[in-house]
Simulated assay, not measured.
Amino acid sequence: METISQSRCYGGTQGAYRHDSRTTGTPMTFAVYEPEHRSTGRLPVIWWLSGLTCTHENAMNKLEYKEACSEHGIIFVCPDTSPRGDEVPDDEAYDFGKGAGFYVDATQDPWADSFRMRSYIEDEFMDVVAQNFPVDMERQGIAGHSMGGHGALTVSLRNPGRFRSTSAFSPIVSPLNCPWGEKAMTGYLGPDREAWRPYDSVALIEDGARIDNLVVHQGRDDQFLDEQLKTWLLSDALRHAGMDAAVHMHEGYDHSYFFVSTFIAGNIAWHAERLKA
């Protein structure tokens, strides 16, 4: 693992790092905030999955999590959203290719070799972080925004019991039912819509997946709400499944990091209650 940068922040360390991924076949960058703590202690961790066009830097620079993580003693980790590099295939559109991995394992050429973000996040990346930072893998939470909210929901629903807490801001709740999802799933996975279901939180719940401690935050003035996000589909699925989850609709807020930053400290406190129980 290579250290790209480290800066002291709220008594802890905000760093950026790089490692060679066996899953994607590329170098992968990520950010870690490690609060000040006793050298022998291991801390709970929140994995943050970012949205379309983002790298690890967007949340690291724009999302105001560091003070709250320092207060609650939580490590905060931000992976990249896709493989990178000159040899990695790309698309001219912002919502496909680099920066738009959708946290799936692609099966279609030319994406299948490197766009394996599901396996990267679930099977490799978290272990890399655990081997290099003092995270307590018995106390994990996962969260994300937009495409990353979709990622957080689906990763958690596919791995019940792995995360003590799950939250999502402005998530794409059902790629089966929105233009962003239909484009990405067709391109990465092909036309068989049954193959998309493991990457759709509404479909996963319909198919029997269940998790505890779930909260969703959504702005009512989000410009993508009606066409792309369709939060009501998740609310309906949760109600029909009898899942104890909270979906908060916030008046006047849009899709931006201004919205997410407004509520991130409270969200981290919510995670902390469950990660330290």
Rank of each mutant, 00 (worst) to 15 (best):
K98H: 14
A100C: 14
V104S: 00
V104H: 00
D105G: 01
D105R: 01
T107S: 13
T107I: 13
Q108P: 04
P110Q: 07
A112I: 02
A112V: 12
A112S: 13
D113H: 11
S114T: 15
F115S: 07
F115W: 11
F115K: 06
R118L: 05
R118T: 05
Y120E: 12
E122Y: 07
F125M: 09
D127G: 09
D127F: 08
V128P: 05
V128G: 08
A130H: 05
Q131K: 12
N132M: 04
F133C: 06
D136L: 11
M137H: 06
E138I: 08
R139T: 03
R139N: 10
Q140M: 15
G141Y: 02
G141K: 06
I142C: 06
I142P: 04
H145E: 13
S146N: 03
S146P: 02
S146K: 03
M147H: 09
G149F: 10
H150Q: 15
H150Y: 13
H150A: 11
S156H: 01
L157F: 04
P160S: 08
P160N: 09
P160K: 05
F163K: 00
F163S: 00
R164D: 12
R164L: 15
T166H: 02
S167I: 02
S167K: 02
A168P: 04
A168G: 07
A168T: 09
F169E: 06
P171D: 12
V173A: 15
V173W: 03
V173E: 09
V173P: 02
S174L: 11
L176P: 06
L176M: 15
L176W: 12
P179Y: 12
G181N: 06
K183Y: 11
K183P: 15
A184T: 08
T186C: 13
T186S: 14
T186L: 15
G190N: 12
G190E: 08
P191Y: 13
D192C: 13
R193Y: 05
R193L: 14
E194R: 04
W196F: 00
Y199L: 00
D200P: 01
S201K: 02
S201C: 10
A203I: 00
L204H: 10
I205M: 01
I205Q: 01
E206H: 14
E206I: 14
E206F: 09
G208C: 10
